[in-house]
Structure formats: structure tokens, C-alpha cells
Computed example of a mutant assay.
Amino acid sequence: MSTELIKARSQLSGIQRYLKQKKLLPAIVSLHDAIGIILRTPLMAHEKKEFGTSVEQALYTLNNDAEFKKVCPMVLEYNAGQEKQLMGTLRELLEDLQGSAVDEAKQLLAAIEEQKVKGLARGKELLGRKKFKDAKFVFDKLVLQFSDDTDLKTQIAELLLKAERHEDALEYLTQALKEFPESAHLYNRVGMVLRKMNRFDMAEKYYVKALKLAKDDPGLYFNIGRLYIDWEKWDKVARVAAMAVKLSPDFSEAKKMHTFAKKKMRKEAAKQDK
């Protein structure tokens, strides 16, 4: 996932926190900027669905905020494919509000983003020096400070995965998934971590949940194929690899996976015939 999309998710998840802190303008600016990223970034089908859900949740929270009702007499509505209209409405609303206050809100958001970046960089540095407990302390402190930032937890998990700290990564991914159970991406990542931990049965269950949310994602079928390779379930490898190729005919790695699985199946059949 691109840095821009991660930023958009972080902005959407922060809206409720800003409203709780009585920071209305940062909440509106966050929604406006997040939708801008969504509009200019090509999204896969399951990503469109996930972002649509996040925008709907953000609008519900915003429309029910007492301070927002004072500055915006209308209820903001959103339907898939109407991002431009919503962004235009938010832009008009921000223009109607005091310019200096909007600038201050943007500066606040930039400072918060910088704080997260610095925390992630510090944790990454500690992981590189194999100071795992110290890194975990930094990450836990960051999550405590931005407790509702689902994508921050995901970013931390990715850093831990690269350092092969699978148990710790699973902890943060599980937290993120509890906050955003509609995310195929998170189910996929949890499945991948469990595969690396050789917990194949549990990994399969998470992948099945991911498929329910993103049944047209060829990359997801390929990832499931990697699970079945490690598990040596060659018939299932062949099946999911074939599905990946069907969805994406130019997916060369999936084609290789399918060929590999068929070869393994033939060898297994030959052994049984002896």
C-alpha cells in the first residue's frame, strides 16, 4: 500500500479523536485531504470498499457533532463514486470558515504527522540495533498517544515483520483488525504472519475472511497459495493459483505457482501408484 493511502487512512481514523478534543477544523481538514488522496490514487475493488466504509463512518461522526452542526446546517452525504461532490462541499465549508484558523489546523495536522514519523523512525532504528524491548516501548508509547490510529498500528506491524518479530507484529495487527474488521488488507496481513509462524490452520481462517471482503483480488489468492505451499496442500495451491490467473491473466508468478503445484500433484500421484 502506498504512503499516500496510509496517510489517508490515518487522517480518516483521526477524525473522531479531533472531535473528542473539540478540534473541529482539524477534523474537517483531515476528511477533505483524505478524500483528495482517494480521488487521485488508483484503488483496487476491496480498497474502494474499505475507504468507502471509512468515509461513511467519518461522516456519521462529523454530522452528529454539536460544534459541526453550528457551522454546517446541512447533513453531509456520501455515496460511492461521489467523492468529488463531497470534496467540493468540504472545500466550500473550509473557505467559509476563518482562513487563519484553517491554516492553524493544517499546521497542527502536519505537526502530528511529523510526530508519528519520528516515532516510527526511532522504533525502526532500535529494531535495526536489535534493541527489541526498547523498540516495543517506543511503539507502545506511540500507540497510546494515537490510540485510534489503525494504520499507525499497521505501520508498526510492518516494521516488526521486517525485523522478524512475528509475535509482536501479530499483536499490533490484531489490535488494528478489532478497530477495522472490514479490512481485507488486515486479514491478509494477519494470515501472512500466522503462515510465517507455521500456524497454518489459523492462517487459513483469516485468509477465508479476507476473501469474503476481496474475492476479486488476484494477489490475495496468490498469498493464500503461498500458505498452501508451506502446508504442502498441492491441490489447494493449484486451485487458488488458477483463480489468481483467471482474475489476472498476465500474473506470471501465479502461473509459475500453478505449474509448480501441478508438478507436485503428479509426483504425489505417481508415488501412490507404486
Rank of each mutant, 00 (worst) to 15 (best):
K178E: 12
S183H: 00
S147N: 12
D140V: 02
K153T: 08
F180Y: 12
A157R: 00
Y187N: 14
F137K: 12
H166C: 00
H166G: 01
Q145R: 13
L173M: 12
R165A: 12
I156W: 09
Y187K: 06
H166K: 10
A135M: 04
K178D: 11
L177V: 04
D149L: 04
A184D: 04
D134E: 13
E158L: 05
Y187L: 03
L177F: 06
K136W: 04
S147E: 14
K162Y: 11
E167P: 00
F137W: 04
Y172R: 13
P181V: 11
A176M: 08
K133S: 15
P181I: 11
V143F: 01
A176Y: 05
E167T: 14
R165V: 10
H166R: 10
A184V: 05
A157K: 01
S147F: 09
A176V: 12
S183G: 05
T174C: 02
K178F: 03
T174I: 00
K178Y: 04
V138C: 01
S183C: 02
D140C: 02
T174W: 01
R165E: 15
F139I: 09
A157E: 02
P181F: 09
F137A: 13
S147Q: 13
L142S: 05
A184F: 01
A135F: 05
F146D: 08
K136S: 12
E171Q: 08
V138I: 06
L170V: 00
D149P: 05
